[in-house]
Simulated assay, not measured.
Amino acid sequence: MEYFDIMSQACKDVALPFNEDTYNKFSQYKDMIKVWNEKINLTAIVDDEQIFKKHFIDCIKIFKFSPLKQAKNVIDIGTGAGFPGIPIKIMKQELNLILLDSLNKRINFLNEVVSKINLNNVETIHGRAEDFSRQPKYREQVDVAVSRAVANLAVLSELCIPYVKVGGYFVAMKGPSVDDEIKDGKRAISILGGKIDDIIKINIEDSDLDHNLVIIKKVKETPKAYPRKAGTASKKPLK
């Protein structure tokens, strides 16, 4: 229970309850990250304290965007080791979660996490974001799309916004310097049917880390031409 208090403090900051059962799920998740990280590259962060702060608490802070608490379904694009999707699901177990990643080894890891810590209503998808958002089952179907991927905002927007229903949101988790990305991405966001609604600064307890949540509201349907075929968004970002 070494990190229970700091996790509890972080949850209090976003007005969410936290208990021993929730903490145990995060602890199991942390242990699995460390075991699997020896087989496949999940994260460069392997110290327990840093996993709790730089991964778990950082992801929990996405609830600073309070409409996420009312979301019924969420997709995490380029989820990697499950960030921020798995922490979101642990904190709000009633929502339906889709985890999408292009590497099947990571999907295998996520399937084991979902099974071991008893998370229901989680769908894992192995594939490219550009391919699945063209399918009627997924296109403009989710309340909130989230991503902590490293691509710039223009690229991420083309990958994520097509999944969001009109009136829903795309939340991009970004580092401290987002001004240039926002300036460069504004036109792409508009083309794709979104508008920047808010930028929420977040900080991590007991650390000097500070990040931003870029909140993009879906205000109109994404034109059928988008997303372009796989790989195009990163090679030729919309400007």
Rank of each mutant, 00 (worst) to 15 (best):
E140S: 00
V74G: 00
P176N: 06
I216V: 15
Y23C: 13
R128A: 06
K235I: 09
I77D: 05
T124D: 12
V14E: 00
G193E: 07
L209I: 09
N24G: 04
L156T: 08
N37K: 12
M91E: 04
M173N: 06
M32K: 14
V14G: 00
M32P: 10
A172P: 09
F132Q: 13
K61Q: 14
K34N: 11
F56I: 10
I189K: 13
S190P: 01
K229W: 02
S115F: 07
S157C: 04
T22V: 13
Y163W: 11
D210M: 08
L110G: 05
I125T: 05
K34I: 14
G82D: 07
F170V: 11
V142Q: 00
M173P: 04
S157L: 02
P227Y: 09
I45H: 04
D47E: 14
K116H: 12
F56M: 05
E49D: 08
Q28C: 14
G85A: 02
V74I: 03
Q70S: 12
D101Y: 12
Q9Y: 06
K64E: 11
A71L: 08
D58Y: 06
I57Y: 07
S234N: 14
K220G: 11
S157T: 02
Q93W: 00
M1K: 10
F63E: 03
P84N: 09
Q141W: 07
L99R: 15
F132K: 14
I57M: 05
A145D: 09
